[in-house]
Design a protein around this nucleic acid. Structure first.
Length: 675
RNA sequence: GCCACCAUAGCUCAAUUGGCAGAGCACCUGUUUUGUAAACAGGUUGUUCUGGGUUCGAGUCCCAGUGGUGGCUCCA
């Protein structure tokens, strides 16, 4: 059974309970395995067969560690693999070489991650490329020698002695000895009695292992730290604490694997949506307009518009009603909704309008709530499903902006469903099915579904506990009912309710949240939404917020990478180009162009004064699905000579046959370009 | 926002220790009329990101700003 690439591996590879604390192995790089033990939530007991992933506020380092951690296709756990040991050991060797280069450096932690490893250092001076080169060379030299990795169990006192000059290690030792606690002082890991250290060559690290037996097991030619530049990282992921220098490396079992990895990286960069966005004339981000504010070029706008129309039609079929609302709203709207105090940091400053304060809207729900309120509602009216491609504006930190996947102004394919409590489960399931349909139609099967629940210890949520529990149960039930492969993460809820998110990874394996469904009892309360029930009582509807794409910008960014710029014909900005062989064939080319346009296709005849071969090359590079080459023979026989994006030359085809077949491909939303 | 690095023609990049700013592609003009990934010739293209500084002289060195990249933090 093929699972999506990380739905099962990442989270569920963690032991359901803390590993037995024999006082033995405790490795800082695998801290998270302890921190992230499954913790069944009360609300879910009995209904959930899936693991609960607890996010620990008290140890963000562990959280990051986990995020980076191995994502593995095979049945073997990454932690048990030889590759894991190699990378873990390579991290130690890198630290050894770094300490030779920077004897005063303080070492933090150095775990294996997906595709490699890193180690964090507190350095006396900034590191430069020369240092990296030196360290890499030195590392390889150490690896070429034969050093054993020896394990030793030590008492906390011995450990403190050994690491007396290493403040980060001392902090870790204290935490281990005292046992880990969360922010409220609840224990989340038992105290350790003894610690383990590993030594190779002249380097000793506080570590649980596992490691290779000897550096002989690591091929120096399969190790590289030159690939990734050094990066800043906060100690334990806390931005208020010391910022460390993180050095990434990669290590494989063989040089061939390293070469393949580098080739994969190079390929990934080629399909990066920012690279393809420029090459295919889809969008630009212009400094004068502002960072994080993409401009859609005609090709990109066609793609976007096509997606919008597609989804709009699907939604209309399913009983959604279109609404249109403005991009600004009176600040009272957000004070009423509760967004204003909670999200002040990500909103833009209010705009003064004749003495009233207005805001660029950071979300669409308040507007839709007011539409609901605009007239009395009967139980017979529900469910009401208001849909809008609503543009919102959010302040994002400058360092976090990235292409189309993280922007400051974006359009949510939003809808808000106002439902009776008895309709909640059915409507929620219908929404999940809609999202599955959207993802499935585009061939996007590599996602993970995450149920974000409230962090019981946090006060950043509004609403009644019982309602939260009800909403959470509804979401879990719906996922169970649909057989969705989900996992639960505490602390990932919206402030007003729990949610189900669909998360995908981009070409460089970064995670992005796309589709989302959220159950909300709170906004109806805050906006005092009501309907008159069959018993003539006024009752409160439940709201479902949902967006299958999440945002058009981010979704298209991911979609560009998903298709590597070769969109299925129904999405391709230009579906066919007609290439006349000689000038004398131009009239026929234009005739075909007109014919195809009349059949609703996006085509153009390329009448440029240049030879056919160069035109073929140009349009192939633009990933045009169909190239129609026409010459004397085609005019004579009323045919087109079809050349596919895939490089196949299908030869002459009667014009009418092409039109019918192409239309059929487009209308069926097929990814197939062969006719 | 933080750490590091980067910024030369529309694009990809070059320019020796500080010494006249270049190439390919694109674009324009002309020639060419081609049967499946680049015809030929000529030509245009620059506030070397911006502002200061050092120097006889700055694309190159220094400072500040802006923008970008990688990472961290954040992410309704």
């Amino acid at each position: 059974m093929k699972k999506c690439w990380w739905s099962s591996a990442t989270k569920r590879s963690f032991p359901p309970t803390p590993p037995p604390r024999t006082g033995l192995p405790v490795c800082f790089s695998t801290f998270s395995a302890i921190i992230f033990r499954g913790l069944p939530s009360k609300a879910l007991t009995g209904s959930c067969r899936h693991s609960v992933w607890r996010k620990s506020a008290s140890d963000p380092t562990a959280r990051q560690d986990t995020k980076d951690r191995g994502i593995f296709m095979s049945d073997e756990r990454y932690e048990d693999s030889q590759l894991y040991k190699i990378r873990h050991s390579a991290a130690h060797v890198m630290a050894e070489a770094m300490l030779e280069r920077f004897p005063d450096a303080k070492i933090a932690i150095g775990p294996p991650i997906e595709d490699g490893f890193y180690y964090d250092f507190d350095l006396p001076t900034a590191i430069n490329d020369e240092d990296i080169k030196w360290v890499e060379k030195r590392m390889k030299k150490i690896l070429a020698q034969s050093h054993r990795f020896t394990l030793r169990e030590v008492t906390p006192a011995e450990a403190r002695e050994i690491f007396q000059d290493q403040p980060y290690k001392l902090e870790l030792i204290d935490d281990l000895v005292n046992g880990r606690q969360d922010d409220n002082g609840s224990p989340i890991a038992a105290p350790a009695e003894n610690l383990t250290i590993y030594t190779q060559s002249k380097f000793t690290d506080l570590c649980r292992g596992p490691h290779v037996e000897s550096t002989k097991e690591i091929n120096p030619k399969a190790v590289s730290i030159s690939l990734r530049r050094p990066a800043g990282a906060y100690w334990r992921g806390d931005e208020k604490r010391q910022q460390l220098t993180r050095i990434y490396g990669t290590a494989w079992e063989t040089p061939e694997e390293l070469r393949d990895y580098r080739a994969r990286l190079a390929e990934a960069i080629k399909r990066d949506h920012r690279v393809l966005g420029e090459k295919l004339d889809l969008f630009v981000i212009d400094a004068m307009v502002g960072k994080g504010l993409p401009l859609w070029l005609p090709n990109g706008a066609v793609l976007r518009d096509t997606l919008e129309r597609w989804l709009r039609d699907i939604q209309i079929e399913r009983g959604y009603l279109p609404v249109v609302t403005p991009h600004l709203g009176n600040i009272e709207l957000y004070k009423t909704s509760g967004h204003y105090p909670y999200y002040a940091d990500s909103q833009y400053s209010p705009i003064d309008v004749d003495g009233d304060e207005f805001m660029l809207r950071p979300m669409n729900c308040p507007h839709h709530c007011r539409i609901y309120s605009s007239q009395p509602r009967s139980y017979r009216d529900l469910p009401l499903r208001y849909a809008e491609f609503g543009t919102v504006y959010r302040y994002e930190q400058s360092g976090e902006l990235r292409g189309l996947t993280r922007v400051r102004g974006f359009t949510v394919d939003d809808a808000h469903l106002f439902v009776r409590p008895d309709q909640l489960l059915g409507e929620f399931m219908a929404v999940v099915k809609l999202i599955q349909h959207v993802f499935g139609s585009l061939g996007m099967s590599d996602f993970r579904a995450r149920i974000g629940t409230r962090d019981a210890d946090s006060d950043k949520y509004v609403g009644d506990n019982a309602l939260w529990e009800e909403a959470t149960v509804a979401i879990v039930d719906a996922c169970e009912e649909l057989g969705l492969d989900y996992h639960i993460e505490e602390g990932e809820a919206a402030f007003y309710g729990p949610k189900l998110d669909f998360i995908v990874r981009d070409v460089l394996k970064r995670e992005w949240q796309l589709g989302t469904v959220q159950v909300d009892y709170n906004l109806p309360e805050r906006f005092d939404l009501e309907y008159v029930d069959s018993d003539n009582e006024r009752k409160r509807p439940v709201m479902i917020h949902r967006a299958p794409f999440g945002s058009l910008e981010r979704f298209i960014g991911i979609l560009i990478e998903h298709f590597a710029g070769a969109f299925p014909p129904w999405l391709a900005p230009i579906q066919a180009v007609i290439i006349p062989i000689r000038e004398s064939h131009n009239d026929y080319a234009v005739e075909i162009e007109d014919l195809l346009k009349a059949r609703g296709m996006r085509v153009k005849a390329d009448l440029q004064d240049r030879n056919m071969r160069s035109k073929i090359k140009q349009h192939r590079q633009m990933n045009i699905p169909w190239l129609l080459i026409v010459g004397d023979r085609d005019i004579e026989n009323r045919t087109v000579s079809l050349r596919l994006r895939s490089d196949e030359d299908l030869g002459a085809l009667p014009l009418a046959e092409f039109v019918g077949a192409a239309r059929e491909r487009i209308d069926s939303y097929s990814g197939e370009i062969r006719l």
